[in-house]
Structure formats: C-alpha cells, structure tokens
Amino acid sequence: MRDMPQVLAEVRSLRRQYGAVLALDDVSFSIRSGEVLGFLGPNGAGKTTAMQILTGNLAPTSGEVVVNGHDLLAEPKKAKQAMGYLPEQPPLYREHRVDEFLDYCAALRGIPRRERRAARERSKDRCGLKEVGARLIGNLSKGFQQRVGLAQAIIHAPPVIILDEPTVGLDPIQIREIRALIREFGKDRAVVLSTHILSEVEAVCDHVQIINKGRLVLSDTIANVLRRVRSNTLVVRFRTAPEIAALEKLQGVETVQPVDNGRLRIFHRADVDPTDGVVRLSAERDWGLQEISPEHGSLEQLFVQMTETVPTP
C-alpha cells in the first residue's frame, strides 16, 4: 500500500485503572500523517487519561503506545521527541518571557543551540506571537497564553501533535484562529485533538472517535459519520400529542424519541424514508403536523446516542 500515508502513532489495547475505577478499557487506534483525529467524549470519559498515556505523562496499566516507530516504554526519549503536547492547562512558567520560555522548551527537546533561535522564531511566527516575544507570560491574555502553549508544542517540529481541549476559555475569534492553525498542522502531520465541543470536531477533524466511560464507542471518518447522522433521523412536531406506538409501526421507523418543545425525533433505517408515511398518518388521525424535516447534519444526536445508550455494533 504505497499511497497510504504513514502511520505516525499507534495505540494498542490500552487499559488504565485507578484503583477500582477503570478509566480506559481496551482502547486502540492509530493516526496517520495528514490526519486530524478528533477525540470526543463527555467530561470524565477518559479523554485526558488517553492523552496523558499517549504522551508518556501517565503509564498505562497495560497496552502499548508506538510513536513514529518507537515504543513509548522501550524508547521513551525517541518517542517523546516525535511528539508535541498541549495539555488542558498549558504548562507555562508565568515569570518567564515568551522568548525565554520557548528557548528553554527548545533546549529541553534537544534542539542544538545554533538552531534554537530559528526554531523559536518559526514557531512564534506560526502561532502569531511575533509581537509578544519580550512580554512576561503571566501578563498575557488567556488567548495568547494558549498560543504560547501551542508554540511550545510545535517548536521541535514534531510529526505528532497532541492537543487537549485547545480552545477552552477562548473568545470566538481566537477559537477560529486556533482552529485554522490546527487545520494547517494537520496538512503534513498527525494531530490528535481532544474536545467535548462537537462543532469543533466537525470544523477541523478528518476522523472522529467517541469515547465513553473509558471505551471507544465509535471510530470513523467525519464524512461517514455525518452521512450516517444526516440520513437517519427526522424531526417532527404535531399540534396534538401523537401516538408514538403508531409512528413506530410505520415502515422503516426504528424508534421515536421525544425532544424538547414537543418535538419528536424519528430514527429510521437508512434505506427507507418514512416522511410520506408520517404525513399520511398525521392527516388521517388529525394530529396537526406543524413541522417535519430531515435532521440537520450534526454530530450531536450521534454523540448523545453513543454516550447514553449501550451501543450495538
């Protein structure tokens, strides 16, 4: 397979236990070059644990991590050299100046003295930090601090970049800028992005993984996921309360769930469109159909579905 992009990071059957709590249970995935992988899950699902294990901040109870061909346990230095990590809370020394801090990070990642300056300038350039090099990190705004965190993660030009909730606490413009940056990194590297913001995944990722209670419940390309979501649900609203059982008997309908404002969500099989049936039934029984639409493509219902019910494969 010559055209398949190179696998840059691979995680095999990762498990992590905190005492009796199983934070990660048999999680496996891989990331290829040129891919942005969205790691999605509700709070406490194990996203951060997975990121910490991937970056060597936490040891897994069992399982293995291979980054750029180096096993994280056997060759931690080589594996870590190939990764840049921005944790949830950017690890910044508030009392340092931006330039000083980035120089230190460059030195920590083993960039030779002569090349440090160039590496620092390149990384500042990409993250829009040109003007703040001489300022104290502690005095920067949250958005700029986040960018320093990003600059720190990419200073050694790692093939794998791992970002844990990089847009939390930023204003909408900053969010757009950071997302644009992430997409740019995704062109020639592998990016893992953890988030609980669904629109973020839609906006920047090629690949989605949903994690819930420590297990991967979905792993697919964003295109497939969106297609799946878009074609399988209808949202309807009636003036009077309909008989849900009757709706469920329609051909192709799988389940009907109430949503807010008296709306109902009809899940149906991908190959049958029950719209006609719903309209006819409503007219026959005089329910007063007010609204009917195929659900707008969004990850939300899939996410809710995946994280609330036990998925059937």
Partner: peptide
C-alpha cells in the same frame, strides 16, 4: 501545583 510538570514529563528527558 501549576501543572507545569507536564512540560518536563512530555519532553525527551528521563
């Protein structure tokens, strides 16, 4: 406490 230990732990240093 400041969560900066991550910087050292994820860098290629033992």
């Amino acid at each position: 406490r400041n969560r900066t230990m991550t910087l050292l732990f994820s860098a290629p240093v033992s």
